[in-house]
Structure formats: structure tokens, C-alpha cells
Nucleic acid binder design. Structure first.
Lengths: 245, 245
DNA sequence: TCGAATTTGTGCGTATGTATC
DNA sequence: GGATACATACGCACAAATTCG
């Protein structure tokens, strides 16, 4: 009979409108739950559900014991990454990392991407990167031992040529590596990843499958999985043409 | 003192585990709320909150009057998109779309990306794309009227040159457009977007800011926001070198 | 340092509405 | 119509975080 929305939807809409109208700005404190009861006449739980909805929409953040606040819509700093690189393109950002390398047998998917036999020997390395000391993203890479085995660069992060990136390392053993192929999709963090990054599981991330190829032979020489939290990273592909207007 | 999680988190974890252990498979009906009360001894509202959490994680779907079900985790096929294109690179996939165009004043962000004055006239078009009849992704594009105004291609989806893509349309008025610049990040769906796509809000998506430039002058001629659900789309950047090994 | 007041977070029990079978 | 199930709402209680005197 009635076309009225549910009370909690009604309250959520009102709050949304009041934010939109400029009554509250970024970072401002919103009415408390008890205030909402006074304002709209519904119960506390209606206010809770309304704020819960707005929280899910990313418009509002709750702070225990303090109140509800208008969230900053635009994240303060979104670091930009370019294909191939593992770190930010911006200057003045301190990138650090921890890594662990071990020889392993190629999994089904790694083998397929490296175009080697499943179970074949690979160097498997896991990275946890940090920006200004805060965990920022995860990388896991695989390199065929058939390519780097017995050379000085077999360990990506140790030895005289450790820690300088795939392109430079491969150059040491005479392999010219071009721009990588990157396959990007979106998913939510697993529990294990969330633990490493110190954020809530279920946070959206870009999952990037990156593969570097030998320019001369066309064979894959490295493949990696990158996990980039969406609230901290953007990746920029392509270059704009030079301005000649 | 106690390290126990909240009851609703505990129940959510148990259900998650039971699904992971194979006790319930895709599409299976999960215990009803009253059954959860019998199983775990908490109240109905605890079960509701637990299922609510799992719903948000995308593991469970609720069907009014029927019950809670295990949602299909793995999509049958992940479509591949290439930069610039709006549709899948795969063959045999039927891509359809609905669109709405209207002239508008450029918002702050659209103006910045198009390098025009904020509030300047633009053609604003919203698309809802479907694959095999099922809503698959969203696109919203802006083109400066200074570029297309008064030409045959002013409406992207109407007239003799409607619906053929940016590169081809711009070619009609003598503008050569190169590969676009795409900036990719991850976020969750807003409620409005979730409604259009018919999926749960909070689902992870790739958000792509795409800009096409005039190859000759280096000026932006079109910019667009793409919303690509992570469970249906991947975007592939770069090409592997030819095999000569 | 302590405690009171405020505020959100969580849980419980119940009632009502509505969809499904 | 009746039984079952989820959706929403209300009121109350207590826990936990914050603020302030």
C-alpha cells in the first residue's frame, strides 16, 4: 500500500542529502545515534542500520566512542605504478621490502605462464613491500632455473646484482627484456594477505599477472603476481602523445 | 581476558569453514536462522549478522522466504578486455548495450581530464553493457563539445556513425586517435552500480579512467570511467614479443 | 589518576511484514 | 490457508573507546 521506503533507507537518504547539500563536509562529525532518534523519531537501531549502509557506500566512517564522520571521498594519496615497475612512479616516496627466495617446482599455473613443464625447477620469491614503513603491496615471482640457474643473478635479491629489478638483472646475463604483459583483474583480499598487509580482509585489490619476455626469442623469463590494494595504488598504462597543438 | 571473537564472527567463521570443507557446495542451501540457533546456541540476530557478513564477502546470497545459499564463487569464464576496447577480446560473445546521451557541463574531474574549463560543454553518455543478455559492466564517457559539436558524430550512439567506437568515430571528422592512457585501480561497487549490474554491493571491481588523445595535437578528445566487475573481467595490457626461439 | 558522561559496537528477545512453498 | 523463512524494526542491556572535568 505505502510507497514509503523503510525507515532506515529513509534516514540514510536524508543523511546522504544533507551531506550532498553541504551541511556536512569531509571529516565533519555527523549526528550521533541518539541525535538521530530525536531528529527523525525512529529507534536507535534504525540509525545504526542507516549509518551502516552509508558506511558500506564509503560515504561515512564510524569511530568507536567518537561518532560518525563524513569520510574523505578522495583518498589523500593514491600512488601510481607503471607496468613492469614494482614501486611508485612518484618521487619522495621511500619504498622498502622484505623478500624470501627458494627453489621450487613450478605449479600448474606458473608453469603455464612460463611455458615450461609443470613441476620444472623455478626460483620462487615472495615480497612484502612497504611505503614509508607501512606494508603497501605484495608480489610473488617465479623465474625458470633454466634461464638463471648457475648464473650470478639466480637469487633476485642477493649477490652482486640483487634487488635491481628484472630488466636490469636479465641484462647482466645478456637477455634483453621488453615491456611486460600485464593481466589485471579485481578481487578481495584473502585472510592471509590481509594479515600481511595489516588491513581488513575483504578490501578490494587489483590482482596483476605480470610476465616478462625475452625480446630476442619471445620466451617468458619471469612471471609474477602483484596484489595492489585499491585504496593505495593505481596503475597507469600507456603514454599520452606529445602536445603539438 | 578472553580471546574469543564475537558470537556473530564465530558463527560466520564456522559457516565459512564448513563451506570450505565441502559440506556445502555452490548453490546449496545453508542452515536457516532458526537452525543456527539450534546449532550454535546464539540468538537469531547473531545468525543474521553472521550471514550478513558472509553476504558482504560474496560467499553467500540470501533469498527472501527461501533461505541462504552458497553463491557461485568461480565464474565460468573471465572475459578479457584490451585497452581502448569496451568489449571482450574473445570470439563468440554477444555484447549488447543501452546508452543515454545528453549535453552537460563538465564536472571538475572530467574537465581536468579533458583539459577544458570546468563547466564547459560536453557530451555525457552512460552505458550499461550486457554479455549474452546479462549486465556485465558500466561505462560513462565525456567528450568536449568543442571537438564534436556540430559534427555528424556528436552523439556517440546515434546518427550514421553511431555505435562504432571512439577511434572510428573520431576518424570520421579527421582526428587520428591513438592508444588510450588507462589508469586502473580497485574499489567496491556502490549501491547504485550494484543495482544496475544486478550483483551484491561491495563486490570488487576494476575502476578504469580511460583517456583518448588526438595523435596530431596531443589534446584529449574523450575520457571515460569503466567499471569492470572483477569476477567477470580481466584487462590485458601489452603484447608479448614474437617467438623467434 | 580517577570517574562520569557520551558514543559506538554487539547481543538478546520479540513483534510484524512479506516472500516462498 | 498454513508453515517456513528472511527482512525490518523496537527496546533494552552491557561492553569498549573516547572525552572531559
Amino acid at each position: 500500500m505505502s510507497d514509503e521506503p523503510s525507515p532506515y533507507l529513509h534516514v540514510a537518504e536524508r543523511i546522504r542529502d544533507r551531506i550532498g547539500a553541504g551541511e556536512f563536509e569531509e571529516g565533519d562529525r555527523l549526528p550521533s545515534l541518539t541525535q538521530l532518534v530525536a531528529d527523525y523519531g525512529y529507534s536507535i537501531s534504525v540509525g545504526q542500520k542507516a549509518y551502516g549502509l552509508l558506511e558500506q557506500e564509503g560515504l561515512v566512517v564510524a569511530r568507536h566512542g567518537r561518532g560518525y564522520f563524513v569520510s574523505s571521498q578522495e583518498p589523500p594519496t593514491l600512488l601510481t605504478r607503471r607496468p613492469g615497475g614494482s614501486g611508485p612512479a612518484e618521487d619522495g616516496v621511500k619504498l622498502t621490502w622484505r623478500s624470501e627466495s627458494a627453489t621450487a617446482r613450478a605449479t600448474e599455473t606458473a608453469a603455464a605462464r612460463l611455458e615450461i613443464e609443470p613441476g620444472g625447477p623455478v626460483m620462487h620469491t615472495k615480497y612484502v613491500y612497504s611505503v614509508d614503513g607501512v606494508p603497501s603491496h605484495l608480489v610473488e615471482s617465479w623465474e625458470p632455473m633454466a634461464v638463471t640457474g648457475g648464473t650470478l643473478i639466480v637469487l633476485p635479491e642477493a649477490g652482486p646484482y640483487g634487488g635491481i629489478g628484472v630488466v636490469e638483472r636479465m641484462a647482466v646475463i645478456g637477455i634483453e627484456v621488453g615491456d611486460p604483459v600485464e593481466r589485471v583483474t579485481a578481487r578481495t583480499l584473502t585472510r592471509a594477505e590481509a594479515l600481511l598487509l595489516g588491513v581488513a580482509p575483504g578490501a578490494p585489490v587489483s590482482a596483476v599477472e605480470r610476465t616478462h619476455y625475452d625480446q630476442a626469442t619471445g620466451r617468458p623469463v619471469e612471471t609474477a603476481d602483484l596484489v595492489l590494494p585499491g585504496d593505495r595504488w593505481a596503475t597507469e598504462y600507456g603514454r599520452r602523445p606529445a602536445r603539438r597543438g
